[in-house]
Design a protein around this nucleic acid. Structure first.
Length: 505
RNA sequence: GAGCCGCUAGCUCAGUAGGUAGAGCACCUGACUUUUAAUCAGGUGGUCGUUGGUUCGAUCCCAACGCGGCUCACCA
């Protein structure tokens, strides 16, 4: 459906006029040799006198962001990947014909220019343009220069426009890239191998979550989008890949919120002959160094609160955290009936089939999680809620596991891995019973994973980190949508998605 | 899935005790060879989210729906 809009129609007319004049509106032969930001950096501090002696001619290309025409001269700002720079175009410098064409260029169009640096009367470093040509004619007007684009929906749906007019957006994604690079370097320096494991899995495992389903036609088989790479990465440890990591997407068929997107990026890494305590040290160091590298400080301000990422971070057990952040009596920690009643008291709806461990975990989530603002490692999780973790040697009711909380949010989950195949089979069986009892998120039985463990997995510790949440913390973003280029959205035109329309045909 | 709020020009926003709408920027025409929210003069531009209902008449009142945001639930 063609949009009828006066502004677009005018630009189409200009496009046709250009073509008629023999000008290619989409050429591909202009090669810039300079960038706005680099020129600014190099010459900004020099005064006009000094600049006059610099005879270098720079070739730049960029998008016109502002345009002020004063008869036979004009000022424009162009934007390239390193920023913006002002151009000064005089009819007498670029020639009558070029200047006449230039006056038809619109804000948003790409131009290629050549010229020398100078400073204007008001002291702004600019390019005195001697040559200008059209590089791309654009058909849609940009949002206005002053208020810009603020409509959240449009910013997410048309991220390309957001990126053009809101410079802070790109900064977030540059940081995101640098964080991932930092993590990658950090692990590779420690002899980890980066791998990719299946996104489409016949049995979705490694987490408690509702999976997406898909279907392979040629094989006539159902597949799930992965909820975690965990079981595949541990198969690799069995195979002798003793240090391994993957940074990739997980998919969970659950609600959307400022902290949740259906697909999100997870780092998982596994190290043989390490314990969960080794990973506490590693994560502490990896993330605090990341903060230092990305923000220049170990302290970041998030939603008005200063978060201090300087190591070491606080440690509490699940039980300690419950007692610290609630008025619960110590007796609930060992007495299921008392725990059950206390859970109800704090507003939970505990189910009869829940054991003490599950109840305590739920109480912890309810009373303590939101209060863990400064980075805190929570340890001693109940075995009941940790089907893939190694039991503690001294107390089989808890596992060698921790979760990391910052700003009241779970940032990481890690444990010494369960490598006893008989124990693992029993845990899966308990999960299958949960599933049969109606828990949609309980684990499936994964017989091949048991078989792999029967070949022997070295004692191993592994961790998962929500990359998006780390990026949110380090960029001060309060919504996960602000750290994803294309957050999930319903289709613009009603609820009917393209896939549904296809099905109906 | 539930509650609350929002949806008016390309963008940012006003507005109408119910009588089919305004501003700034952008755009068009003209003037202007150091401007920077350039300036000056004139002008164009809207099925007021969608569909119904009430009404002589709805952008405004009512209902349903759509999309978005926030909160809750689920979760990382």
């Amino acid at each position: 459906m063609e949009e009828i809009n006066e502004l677009i129609a005018q630009r189409r007319q200009k496009l046709e006029d250009l073509i008629e004049e023999g000008i290619n509106p989409y050429p591909n032969n202009f090669t810039p040799d300079a960038l706005s930001g680099e020129i600014s950096e190099k010459y900004e501090s020099l005064d006009g006198e000094t600049l006059r002696e610099i005879e270098d001619v720079f070739t730049l290309a960029g998008r016109i962001m502002t345009k002020r025409v004063m008869g036979k001269a004009a000022f424009v700002h162009i934007q390239d990947r390193k920023g913006k720079i002002q151009l000064y175009l005089k009819r007498d410098s670029v020639g009558e014909e070029s200047y006449r064409q230039f006056k038809k260029f619109d804000i948003g169009d790409f131009v290629g220019i050549r010229g020398r640096v100078f400073k204007t009367k008001t002291g702004e470093l600019s390019i005195d343009v001697s040559h200008v040509e059209l590089v791309v004619k654009t058909l849609r007007p940009l949002p206005e220069k002053w208020h810009g684009l603020t409509d959240i929906e449009t910013r997410y749906r048309q991220r390309y426009v957001d990126l053009i007019v809101n410079p802070g957006v790109k900064e977030i994604f540059i940081k995101r890239g640098r964080l991932i690079q930092h993590i990658r370097n950090y692990l590779m320096e420690r002899d980890y191998l980066e791998v990719e494991t299946p996104m489409m899995q016949p049995i979705p495992g490694g987490a408690t979550a509702k999976p997406f389903m898909t279907y392979h036609h040629a094989l006539d088989m159902d597949l799930y989008l992965r909820i975690a790479p965990e079981l595949y990465l541990k198969r690799l440890v069995v195979g002798g890949v003793e240090r391994v990591f993957e940074i990739n997407r997980n998919f969970r068929n659950e609600g959307i919120s400022p902290q949740h997107n259906p697909e999100f990026t997870m780092l998982e890494f596994y190290q043989a002959y390490a314990t969960y305590e080794d990973l506490i040290d590693l994560i502490e160091d990896m993330l605090s160094s990341a903060a230092k590298e990305l923000t220049g400080s170990h302290k970041v301000v998030y939603e008005g609160q200063e978060i201090d990422l300087t190591a070491p971070w606080d440690r509490l057990t699940v039980n300690e955290a419950i007692l610290k952040y609630s008025d619960a009596d110590e007796s609930i920690l060992t007495d299921r009936t008392k725990a059950f009643d206390y859970a109800k008291k704090v507003g939970l709806e505990p189910e009869e089939r829940w054991g003490l461990g599950k109840i305590l975990t739920e109480i912890f989530d309810e009373v303590a999680e939101a209060k863990l603002i400064q980075p805190t490692f929570i340890t001693e999780y109940p075995t009941e809620v940790s089907p893939l973790s190694r039991k503690n040697d001294d107390n089989p009711d808890i596992v060698d596991r921790f979760e990391l909380f910052i700003c009241g949010r779970e940032m990481a989950n890690a444990f010494s891995e369960l490598n006893d195949p008989i124990d693992q089979r029993e845990r899966f069986e308990a999960q299958v019973a949960e599933k049969d009892a109606g828990d949609e998120e309980a684990h499936f039985m994964d017989a091949d994973y048991i078989r792999a463990l029967e070949y022997g997995m070295p004692p191993t510790a592994g961790a998962g980190l929500g990359i998006d949440r780390i990026v949110m913390l380090l960029t001060g973003s309060s919504s996960i949508r602000d750290v994803l280029f294309f957050p999930h959205m319903r289709p613009e035109e009603g609820r009917k998605s393209a896939a549904k329309e296809l099905k109906e045909k």
